[in-house]
Design a protein around this nucleic acid. Structure first.
Lengths: 301, 301
DNA sequence: TCACCCTTGAAAGTTATTTCCAACCCCCCG
DNA sequence: CGGGGGGTTGGAAATAACTTTCAAGGGTGA
């Protein structure tokens, strides 16, 4: 995906709420109202005509259609159909008990429950929203890459390190760059056949975009892992992997759920690569286990 | 039969095939053809317009609409909507063999699904197994600590860094030590009122136990986050937080699920602390957001 | 402050659905 | 065996729904 601006070609089947959250920031005010209504009450909206939904949201038919388009459907008709499916779907699924936000006065037990639930939700959203074609392409590129450079700052830096650690373990040459300057310096060394991976939730982190741009210009295969597939970072990404944008609260910064989402994507990427390099990956993995063994003191049984 | 005849008021939700069988005898030949098509392939029919379905069944639009009426819907539009719901429903009913291990020849899509499921399972397990009393005690200690030192190596090091990053953000003095030697050196500085947190999945990582032991001896409050609460690390821990030990496979090393589990625990710890230091945490959080704002390039709308 | 571009809804245009109606077919009665 | 009669059918008109176009409004940066 180089210059294309359409987030995804196939209309999503069920990951609607996730998609709404992901795309919401790139929507105009009116469209956000429509998207919100749709996400809030899929079943109710499925019962409405274009005109009805337009009136409900205080917008026009045109805006409703535009929103449907943005969500990946050819028109409102198809969105409505998907909505009906979604409604039936969630009706069958039992009522989720924990929907409330985490509050300041929640008990510890509540925090654990809600947090675990939120994270699970984030995982489900991410899995549903992940474009497996893009992922497959990224995997293929990484599996045969001469070297893999990974860029991430702040919380995303840890995700990058995690990926680098694992790729190193299966014998690939991977490096997570935390210093933006060194990242750029190193990116210059890349060439076709190499892979550069940028991790940024916002999709607009300059310190991460810059090295990716350089890598892109040098002809390396570039991958962006971002929650904003429409952000600037995608400009320089051959493959864009979208992480989910979960609702955040005051106590639960976005970094928390984006990290979960990013880790899932990164893990999928890793396993994909491990599959494709199984011959070398498997022995490398067990070798690294053995190397660590003496670092563990005997168990007190 | 008059055009306005309506067999029953509530449009059936899902029992469509049954209704078709029940009503089939009372249908005319053409209508039976339509009903049969609908019952045979709900999903396919949902994708068709009146005209399309009429052509498919070799009948006319009028007949299709009549059939929809007979089945209890106001018109074809509504039948189609119900059909879409039904299709989604039975698609989800198709139980994905998600419990199976991730295999070398799994498709990318399978990997994503299975991995997300496994992670969700890990989260549920962790939440269920977490001792909220111990967690509460750890939170209380951390919230009032003069300084917080965190020890972790390997994959756990990233979790430690994550925790340190977040605690720093809300104005606490936290440091994640990655170098075992420096960790010990620093642990010597600890005293009562300080908190030391060791993160080790195996519970027997010497490089992590050693600094914790020192901290423990110095009188600091010590916390262990481990998957083996019976391991050596617990010896020197005032509070033990247990992470779950999910099944691992050849392609999915233990590090992956233990990391998920550790992160949940660490997040719970963080939110607990944030709750207890809300007065200072909230402003500190928003301040850190603003400080980063200029690092993001403007959005491409 | 002005020019520009993005956003928006009204209205026109297109497609889908529903209604109407005449032709047809089948069955039964004469 | 032939001629009604009632039910069945599809063509076509009418309506409703959806999509596209376009010009006015509003915000933003120079």
């Amino acid at each position: 995906m180089k210059e294309s601006f359409n987030p995804d070609s196939p209309p999503a089947p069920a990951a609607l709420a996730a998609k709404v959250r992901t795309l919401a920031p790139s929507m105009t005010r009116s469209m956000q109202r429509v998207a919100e209504a749709v996400a809030h009450d899929p079943a109710g909206c499925a019962a409405l005509t274009v005109t009805g939904l337009a009136e409900l949201t205080g917008t026009s038919e045109a805006t409703v259609v535009r929103t449907a388009r943005l969500l990946g459907y050819p028109g409102y008709r198809d969105l409505r159909l998907a909505l009906a499916g979604l409604a039936a779907h969630q009706q069958s699924g039992r009522a989720p008990a924990v929907t409330a936000d985490i509050a300041v006065d929640d008990s510890i037990a509540d925090v654990v429950t809600k947090l675990a639930y939120d994270e699970q939700q984030t995982l489900a959203d991410t899995a549903a929203g992940l474009d497996t074609v893009q992922l497959g392409a990224a995997v293929a590129a990484a599996a045969t890459a001469r070297r893999i450079d990974i860029y991430g700052v702040g919380a995303s830096s840890l995700v990058g390190q995690d990926l680098a650690q694992k790729l190193l373990r299966i014998g690939l040459i991977a490096h997570a760059h935390m210093d933006p300057h060194l990242a750029v310096t190193n990116a210059v060394q890349l060439r076709p056949g190499d892979v550069a991976i940028a991790i940024t939730h916002s999709g607009s982190t300059g310190d991460v975009i810059e090295p990716l741009r350089v890598a892109f210009d040098r002809g390396a295969t570039t991958v962006a892992i971002t929650g904003r597939p429409d952000g600037p970072v995608s400009q320089y990404a051959d493959h864009v992997l979208t992480t989910s944008t979960a609702r955040e609260s005051e106590l639960r910064p976005a970094a928390m759920s984006s990290r979960t989402s990013q880790l899932l994507v990164v893990d999928c990427l890793f396993i994909g690569v491990a599959q494709r390099t199984y011959e070398t990956a498997a022995p490398a993995l067990s070798a690294s286990y053995e190397a660590l063994a003496h670092r563990h003191t005997p168990r007190s049984r």
